[in-house]
């Protein structure tokens, strides 16, 4: 495994203002994530997991500190450039699946490809659905899929633009334990094939599967 650093964050602080009160959602975190890592972020609700993941995913801006993705500092770039980074470098999976109800599994997977210039990604989408074990369900609409299947479609979709890192925020939050395990198995497999994966979860059992676990509390890293 090579030791290329994909994500490097330094002294990141995120402060939200709630009226008079300032909430330090993330309070001075530094982290280096290398290519091929499988990291899980755990911690109690409100500890800043989502905020941290959003900052890594270029969806939120830190109040202080720097975030580098593939060597580029993303805290100072323009929105158009951020859009490109989100499109080309990052795959996102959320607790809600955000599947478009009128599109089939296959079409949903192709969707992020519409925003990249290379539009025709049917083959790739089929392969990805195959990879998450849904080759028999590619023409089903979300309404005809179970929760676990929908999340697998969402994972396939997050990979259509070949990102360098997959970010998942409580991906099993809406799933039963059997489906949750399957999702983690898929992450594990993707990781074994070289994909960098960061999963936020509060399921400690599942987090143990990951090669590295960090525990957040009050916006700070508790272990290392």
């Amino acid at each position: 495994m090579n030791n290329q650093t994909i994500i490097e964050i330094k002294d990141v602080v995120k402060i939200y203002k709630r009226g008079e009160e300032e909430v330090h959602a993330v309070d001075g975190i530094g982290l280096e994530i290398k290519k091929g890592e499988f990291l899980s972020v755990v911690g109690p609700s409100g500890s800043g997991k989502t905020t941290l993941l959003n900052i890594i995913g270029c969806v939120d801006n830190p109040t202080q500190g720097t975030v580098k993705i593939n060597g580029q500092d993303v805290t100072t770039v323009k929105e158009a450039r951020l859009t490109k980074i989100r499109r080309d470098a990052i795959g996102f999976v959320f607790q809600q699946f955000f599947l478009i109800p009128t599109l089939t599994a296959l079409e949903n997977v192709q969707l992020p490809g519409l925003f990249a210039k290379n539009i025709n990604r049917v083959k790739q989408a089929e392969e990805l659905l195959n990879l998450v074990g849904l080759n028999k369900r590619i023409h089903h609409r979300p309404a005809h899929l179970s929760g676990g299947e929908m999340q697998r479609v969402a994972i396939a979709r997050s990979l259509i633009n070949s990102p360098s890192v997959l970010l998942a925020d409580e991906p099993t939050g809406n799933l039963d334990s059997k489906n949750a395990e399957m999702i983690f198995k898929i992450f594990d497999e993707l990781n074994k094939n070289g994909l960098t994966v960061i999963v936020v979860t509060h399921n400690m059992e599942l987090a143990k599967n990951c090669r590295k676990v960090i525990l957040l509390e009050d916006g700070k890293i508790k272990n290392a």
Binding site: E79, A80, R87, D88, F115, A116, S158
Partner: peptide, 14 residues
């Protein structure tokens, strides 16, 4: 709203 926000997360621009 949420869907557009999601699309933006996966690289849709203005």
């Amino acid at each position: 709203r949420k869907e557009f926000a999601y699309l933006k997360c996966v690289g849709a621009g203005f």
